[in-house]
Amino acid sequence: MLETDRNQLHKCVEEALPELDMMIGWTRCDPLQTTPVFIRDAKSISSLTLGPFCSQNLAGYLVKPPALDAPPKPDAKPIGICVKGCDSRSLVALIQEKFITRQRVRIFGIPCGGTVDWRKVARHVELGSVKSADVQDRVLVIEDSTTTHRIALEEVLSRKCLGCRHPNPVISDVLIGAEVSPRSTGMETSYRDVDELDAKPLEERLAFWQSELDRCIRCYACRNACPLCVCQDRCIVETREPRWLTQHVGVPEKFLFHFIHAMHLAGRCTGCGECERVCPMDIPVTLIKEKLNKIMEEMLGYSAGLDPEAVPPLLTFNPGETEI
């Protein structure tokens, strides 16, 4: 099935490439992982891949170099991009906020059955010795030098995938492969981790975040990987004027950094989980944003990245809401 989808992707990209400025997709770089690739040359199309190892959200590259080397000319060709369900929501959010126009992108939508989190794979096998990996019938089959490991895909899916409500792209020009049914349809299943933490007493929640955020090394990978962290080089955590954060490495600084990240994404975060995926210290960064997403949904009935015409809730208001 994966093979057919990949062939379909190659064929579609081959047809579209002459009309495109470039194509952004994934290529396999390791048995368990992919790396983003920027294709301008038809020769490289065959390196494109899709499937459960394509964990990166590529939408961010549209608002950062290389896609955005310079402001696009009016006659610029569109950029082709592969998106999973969650990635497509980031695209919609970028269109909403007018960072890109719909015409600027040619969207190759890929229905997604969940992506593999290599950290969870590491609980089962030694990553460095993996020779090959493949997914067959929702089972991850890994071969190392001596044995074949078979792990249920459920056990190694990224955390964000477990409560996924939009596995199919919400916006696309071409759909590659068949649509899949969502794993979750309601808030109860989507915000299970948030609810679990919320059920604990306040002191335990504080202790939890202290112990998690204490590991933060402030490499800012979570920020840079976020497709909606559009300030990039102008981010207030690094500017000296205004001066929000010191160079101290204490827990307060780390708390404040994650507050800044979260509050700037309130009502905008599409829950793609990039911040958590890229964290070298395995901090559940997305969980912070999930809570805010839940608040937005409960309080204002809004989920980010579904409607290109909608305005993010904190960028607008309603005089009538006396009791929010």
Binding site: P36, V37, P66, Y220, N224, A225, Q247, V278, P280
Partner: peptide, 22 residues
């Protein structure tokens, strides 16, 4: 081109020693 310009590689590197003074 795919680089995110984050600091992971330098912070986990045993030989990267660049520092800032504030």
């Amino acid at each position: 081109s795919q680089c995110l310009s984050c600091g992971v590689c330098t912070y986990v590197c045993p030989t990267c020693y660049c520092f800032s003074i504030t």
